[in-house]
Design a protein around this nucleic acid. Structure first.
Lengths: 199, 199
DNA sequence: CGAACCCTTGACTTGAATCAACATAGGTGG
DNA sequence: CCACCTATGTTGATTCAAGTCAAGGGTTCG
């Protein structure tokens, strides 16, 4: 029988790449990044996880990513045995479709992200990022991004200065604007242009 | 009951992105590329498929990639109903592990490829490509690549000239060499250096 | 207050893209 | 067999998008 516990994390590592994978996690509140690191410090953030999202599900005994809370975060941990067992439990509860849906959603995100990383310009990447966040946050009037410019850069395969410049361009072109003094609070002014830029 | 047919393809499209996905394919001989296209012609090849590989398995009703044979190719087509049904059949035959293994292998490949596309230099990308092909072809003495420089470039997020230059560098550094007059026949001379470059 | 971050902006450098020329291989048909 | 054509690949010269380096402002927090 799987056991569940709640856990708070304040800007801390939840698990590291290569560690044994004993649990699956679901975010209750906050935000988490999952990333891979080179020995020389280069980093790529694979995905940002927002409330409701599940992460840490592996088909092998160890985690393939490092997971870190980027703001104060609450996660629900579920002990797991193996992916096959997890699937069996899940399937009994909610149908195989929902389990496969989770995995293939990850796969589809990765496929689209490869296209972004390999073939989009800096401006297109940043526009795509804003569009993705807007969609995932269900088109709020004001977006409060939980991640830093460096995190955005490592998600998009850019440097943080380039992200900052691209955002300045989008601001100058009135595609978006900053709300108040904090630069993480963003208002989308022209979603049509944004989608065009996203391609 | 799934029906199977054999099919030969000579450098032709097997299915296109957005088409209805009625079949799953397994390569008997030859090679296939799966790719995504922008409206302006930019292309990213997601994966190369070699004999034994399965491709075209989707969780939705339509294909998310275009699949094209890049040399004379023989594929085995299996009619499919849905991913859940496919899984059920498969599971009965070979165990859920093998089915999940297939999906998660795709996922892991995509995850590693994102790291490559987002954070590796041109030389590292080409080295990683040679290393991947060497591994998948089971370390032959001589590698006969089925794909053109353009295909390699679109797989690595580069331009074909850059791939050519990177290969020239590796040749000059005696990491690899060309065998005979054709530039697609490659001999790896220093697999250790290759792996170092791959990081 | 100072220290530690985070973000922006400017000046400059650089790695890969672009543009261009040329070489070679393979196929076709006279 | 050769002349021609198209594919494919290499290499050199130049350009440009993004990276690097550097300075400065704004917040937060002890």
């Amino acid at each position: 029988m799987p056991t569940e516990t709640e856990q708070y994390c304040k800007k801390a590592t939840i698990f590291s790449e290569g560690e044994e994978a004993n649990c699956v996690y679901q975010i209750t509140s906050g935000a988490v990044r999952t990333c891979k690191l080179f020995s020389d410090g280069r980093r790529l953030i694979n995905a940002f996880h927002l409330p409701g999202d599940i992460f840490g599900l592996e088909n092998c005994s160890t985690h393939r990513f490092t997971a870190e809370a980027i703001v104060e975060t609450k996660v629900r941990m579920t002990r797991r045995l193996s992916l096959v067992d997890t699937m069996a439990n899940w399937t009994r509860e909610a149908g195989a479709t929902s389990f496969l849906g989770l995995i293939t959603r990850n796969l589809q995100h990765a496929e689209n992200h490869m296209l972004l990383l390999g073939r989009k310009t800096a401006l297109e990447k940043v526009a795509a990022f804003l569009h993705e966040m807007d969609t995932r946050l269900d088109h709020p009037n004001v977006m409060d991004l939980p991640m830093s410019r460096r995190d955005i850069a490592d998600y998009l395969g850019l440097k943080l200065e380039t992200v900052s410049r691209a955002l300045a361009t989008l601001r100058d072109e009135k595609v978006m604007g900053f709300d108040g003094s904090t630069q993480r609070r963003i208002v989308l002014l022209d979603r049509r242009r944004l989608v065009e830029l996203d391609t």
